[in-house]
Design a protein around this nucleic acid. Sequence first.
DNA 1: ATAAATTTTTAGATTAATCTAAAAATTTAT
DNA 2: ATAAATTTTTAGATTAATCTAAAAATTTAT
Lengths: 220, 220
Amino acid sequence: MKISKTEENYLKAIFSITEKNQPSASTNAISKKMKTSAASVTDMVKRLAKKKLVIHESHKGVHLTKAGNQIATMLVRKHRLWEVFLVEKLNFLWDEVHDIAEELEHIDSDELMIRLDDFLGNPKFDPHGDPIPDANGEFATRQQVALNELKVGEEGIVVGVRESSTPFLQYLDQLGVGLGVKVKVVEKYEYDNSIKIILNKTKEMVITGKVCQSLFLQKK
Amino acid sequence: MKISKTEENYLKAIFSITEKNQPSASTNAISKKMKTSAASVTDMVKRLAKKKLVIHESHKGVHLTKAGNQIATMLVRKHRLWEVFLVEKLNFLWDEVHDIAEELEHIDSDELMIRLDDFLGNPKFDPHGDPIPDANGEFATRQQVALNELKVGEEGIVVGVRESSTPFLQYLDQLGVGLGVKVKVVEKYEYDNSIKIILNKTKEMVITGKVCQSLFLQKK
DNA sequence: ATAAATTTTTAGATTAATCTAAAAATTTAT
DNA sequence: ATAAATTTTTAGATTAATCTAAAAATTTAT
């Protein structure tokens, strides 16, 4: 069965909406993510349902079938592997790779992905710290906490970000925060949830509660 | 101006037909290459003409404008650079890369191609020995002759093939012929244009006139 | 619990890319 | 040089993906 690039993008949108325990994705939520009209979504959802990639009850939202989920997961795998390639091999910055990977993920060749995976050393996480599902669709898990959950005196290493928008990533670059950076919590300010930290045992700074929530660390 | 993948493929088809001094590509020739009906070609050609990518006189065939030629050349550049990547970095064989490169060539990012080119060491020829146009669209040239033009006693190194079909390339693999192989002409048989050669100073064999015509060598 | 607001679907159109069949134009062969 | 063959174009349809406007269904608020 042939699946168009557009259909693939809808599957990915539904996947990302239902990822966080949401039982189903609403027409509106999908149209927002896909930047199309709600009417287009209704149409497309019907087509995907005919192909058994989603389950749709009128006015109740959609969720992926096993087959649909498999396709979406492989798109995530391809996206993240290409991002590793772009950063590790072509020296792109972590905030520059999303759009290109968005195109590369639609290249259809299992053999290519096997070889790319090997070439990259079978990475388990992408340049933003997001897990790369393996060829069977299994996501690696990792012991991690958001920075705002650390107590004063505790230390950790940055392993991921909650959000991969270009502005956020560039802001982190400005602060000197990236994956692998050591963080020690020096002080916590209840008043606005900001935190004073030391980066790599050298650089002291205060960061806002908003940023703290979006940084994942592995405790030491 | 946005150019669809389909439009790009038509431009490439017209490029490859007109490449060998043909002043224009006929509707039929394009339909054969694109595996579509002649009617579809007429339609598409009109659309490309409206975008100033081709010149079309009814019933007389089409040729690329400067802009159309530029796009086609960059597609060739991208195709061949990706082929180098697939063979050099991902260890694909030279007969396995065409279809994947056919997809990768449509990825639209100048920055990506600059970095890929650098990563690969700015190669001038692809895994089949075909020249890779530079970012300005200039093709490298090379002193080369077809094997059938060598005289008895002359030697050369295989630098290219006239045809990159999978069967031909696999046949060459079987013979032990690939880019970089040294060839010495030992004898020429007028009767059927076959030639007796020695490969890499060790392996003697007779190859047919058909194969001789399709192998390009650099004389020593 | 019903009216108002919101969400979703339906109806009807549009555009890109394709098709087949028929008509028109061009080329080839006698 | 004209008839036959071939090539190209036109006409009219089709499919995927999209849209706006209106209708229908659901949810929210009084």
